[in-house]
Design a protein around this nucleic acid. Structure first.
Lengths: 184, 184
DNA sequence: CTTTATATATATACAAACTATATATTAATC
DNA sequence: GATTAATATATAGTTTGTATATATATAAAG
């Protein structure tokens, strides 16, 4: 899938690996983090398959070592276009270490569980703040990019709402158990 | 992460690989799909690390070949408990082949894009129906499991709302472009 | 002015997760 | 009794993800 993310970005403009990582994190970072260890091998493969071209840039006053600028070829554009109009086969995958723990909190210490829930609410809230602040950045980037950014905000708001509601339910239940034990 | 999902499930009851897959898909299937190719190697590793025990069951009138029943050891329970109270380190990861295409629909054929969006709305809606129907199944499974199932429903409803709103915006924009071209 | 810190940039080894497919057993169906 | 369906385990191969090494150039600190 990363293959097509890279090809898609290269349709906007030529880029080198480092810049590609930046862009992916800006465009998909709502829900996606990427690593150089995924980008450079992919670029190499795209190059070997003739889907991108590469030119080594000379030093030009910029920081860092010489860059390798990649651009999409006609073959690359073709393959990307083909991919774009195929109905997505695989369903959404949501993998969240917090949620994985959450399901099993019944086995753990209730107090510690609530602590982790509070931490998570804070995390969601700071994420939401950042995303809302960046929303205007996508206003002129085309409808689809903008709508995707909006989805990120919606997703974040939904999670906060759900987790705050969950916290209350859990606390209420704790109180109920306490009263039971106290015989009231 | 799968390692801990398996250990967690084995705290409820002893299971063999096939059954573990069923349970994971029932409990986490809101956003998670699993494959035998992930389960059996994991069970083997858990066994080698002494976190689970295994007994080969004799045939007992049930269908299929002999089962290997796994149960969690004290060492396994310890490691699971330790993991459960550590603050989750990595952020949520949402990987969706549909969303990946959606961001780039600006490069593709608008008509085909709307078709794929319609397919996706249908998929979301049938998922929602199934999840809502199954909600009552978790009513007595403990607060955390039930709340996680509710999250699945919320997530689904949010996506439908977002995608239907997005569709309208895209269609409106298409119409605007048409009027522009027609000079009205 | 030289050491140190920082941002840039590429690369690779390793581990975890995912896909595809092979194999085998039993129960039910035809 | 042959076929189909459900159960169950296993593994090869690919893709993803993590950790870390390496190197260059600018900025900042001393």
């Amino acid at each position: 899938m990363l293959k097509y993310a890279i090809l898609g970005l290269l349709q906007y403009t030529d880029m080198h690996g480092y810049r590609i990582k930046e862009h992916i994190e800006r465009n998909f970072g709502h829900m996606w983090s990427i690593n150089y260890g995924q980008i450079y091998p992919n670029l190499k493969k795209l190059y070997n398959d003739g889907l991108v071209e590469m030119t080594e840039m000379a030093q030009n006053g910029e920081k860092g070592p010489p860059r390798k600028l990649y651009s999409i070829t006609d073959k690359g554009k073709e393959e990307f276009a083909k991919w774009l109009e195929i109905s997505p086969d695989k369903p959404m995958l949501l993998r969240d270490p917090f949620l994985m723990k959450f399901v099993f909190f019944g086995f753990g210490d209730a107090k510690r569980s609530l602590e982790i829930i509070d931490e998570q609410i804070k995390r969601y809230k700071s994420d939401l703040k950042r995303r809302k602040k960046n929303l205007n950045r996508w206003e002129n980037s085309g409808t689809y990019v903008r709508l995707t950014a909006e989805l990120g905000v919606n997703l974040n708001e939904m999670f906060i709402k759900w987790l705050e509601h969950s916290k209350q339910e859990i606390e209420n239940q704790e109180t109920a158990i306490f009263h039971e034990q106290a015989g009231t």
